[in-house]
Amino acid sequence: MTTTTLPTPPGSPHDPDPALVVVAHGSRDPRALRTVRALLDQVRALRPGLPVHLGHIELNDPLLPDTLAALGDREAVLVPLLLSRGYHVKRDIPEMAAASPVRARVAAPLGPHPLLVDALHARLTEAGWHRRRGDAVVLAAAGSRDPDSAVDTGRTARLLAARLGVPVVPAYASTAAPTVPDAIAALTAAGHRHIAVASYFTAPGRFATETAAAAPWIAAAPLGTHPAMARLILHRYEEAPATAPTAPLELASA
């Protein structure tokens, strides 16, 4: 399997590193919070001494406003633990940052990025995927009303198709079309005999469980604590813009 490597830009020897705040969505499934906490432990292991914090948009503690309030007026980089652009990335997170005393910079969401393709490929392989004639893959994502989210998911699907050498169709658990069952039905009608579902979710939860149940062959596990995820979080942290955002929508490049 091809592994994507990224250089880590050197930090200033005089200024303390900005705090890293990983912003998770939040979930009622307790496995999600356990997974996110384990992922943050991986980030800390990769960058000892870097202050790493967690904040949730909803559903779980600590909520992002509480995390930011505890940081006072120090500098921080907020990295969304989200896989595409959408309302949370464009509005919710910047607005929460702007309402806090933190000197915040908001990084781009995790996707699209080749490191995610590394993780998706690995999860499919772990589930038993191997390329053969007639295969296809459904890239199962959460879905959003924001068209930029579908653009980002489509780009990941194209990157994964290039890696696997088989068709990869993006599909969604809610809000957007096609649904995962509809994508599976269309691929079956087109003559694909083995259709795998790649779980394009950061952690276990309802959407990941429901899309896995629809798989006619194999379903990969969510991205979770794959090592590429921790590396990508740090990459987004390092590439965040050098100046604090003055309004929503000022994000690092994808």
Rank of each mutant, 00 (worst) to 15 (best):
T179Q: 01
P114S: 08
G165F: 00
A190N: 07
S149P: 02
F207D: 05
T67I: 04
L63H: 12
D182V: 07
G205L: 00
G134V: 07
H56Q: 11
A32P: 01
P216D: 09
E210T: 13
I195L: 02
P227E: 08
L187T: 00
A221M: 07
D15V: 15
V166W: 01
V137S: 04
R158K: 11
V137H: 03
V180D: 03
K90M: 12
Y200D: 03
V52K: 06
E238T: 12
P241V: 02
R34V: 14
R31H: 11
P16Q: 10
T4V: 15
P181I: 04
I233V: 15
P94T: 07
A219E: 07
S100W: 06
D182S: 12
R236M: 07
A98N: 00
G111V: 04
G165K: 01
L78S: 05
G143Q: 00
A119R: 07
T188Y: 02
M96Q: 14
H88N: 09
H130Q: 15
H121C: 10
F207S: 10
Y172C: 03
L68C: 09
H56A: 12
H53A: 11
L6E: 14
L46E: 15
A228I: 10
T3I: 15
H192R: 14
A141Y: 03
R44F: 07
A171D: 00
F201E: 01
L187G: 01
P112N: 09
S149D: 02
P51A: 13
E238W: 11
A19N: 05
A173V: 04
L115V: 13
H14N: 12
A252R: 03
L40W: 06
A242F: 02
A32S: 15
D66I: 07
Y200V: 03
G111F: 04
D73F: 08
A150R: 14
D17G: 10
A171H: 01
A104R: 01
P48V: 11
L40G: 07
V52Y: 06
H235C: 07
D66V: 13
L124T: 08
A212S: 15
P30Y: 09
D61C: 09
A108L: 09
P112Y: 08
L124D: 05
A230Y: 04
H121Y: 11
E210Q: 14
A190F: 07
A142E: 01
P167D: 02
P222T: 02
A244M: 06
E58N: 11
V138H: 00
L20V: 08
S12F: 08
A107M: 05
G72W: 07
P112I: 04
A69K: 09
R132W: 01
R37W: 06
L139G: 04
L71D: 06
D73V: 05
E238Q: 14
V180S: 01
H14Q: 12
G111A: 08
R34L: 14
H194M: 03
G26N: 07
L54M: 09
N60Y: 05
G128Q: 10
T3D: 13
A220L: 08
T202K: 02
T202A: 12
A186T: 13
Y172M: 01
R123A: 02
A141T: 06
S199N: 11
E210R: 14
A203T: 14
R193K: 13
T211D: 15
R123Y: 06
G205K: 00
D73A: 15
A177S: 14
G26C: 09
D29Q: 05
E95K: 12
H121T: 14
E239A: 15
T5C: 10
A254I: 13
L54Y: 06
G224Q: 03
T67K: 06
P18M: 09
V151P: 01
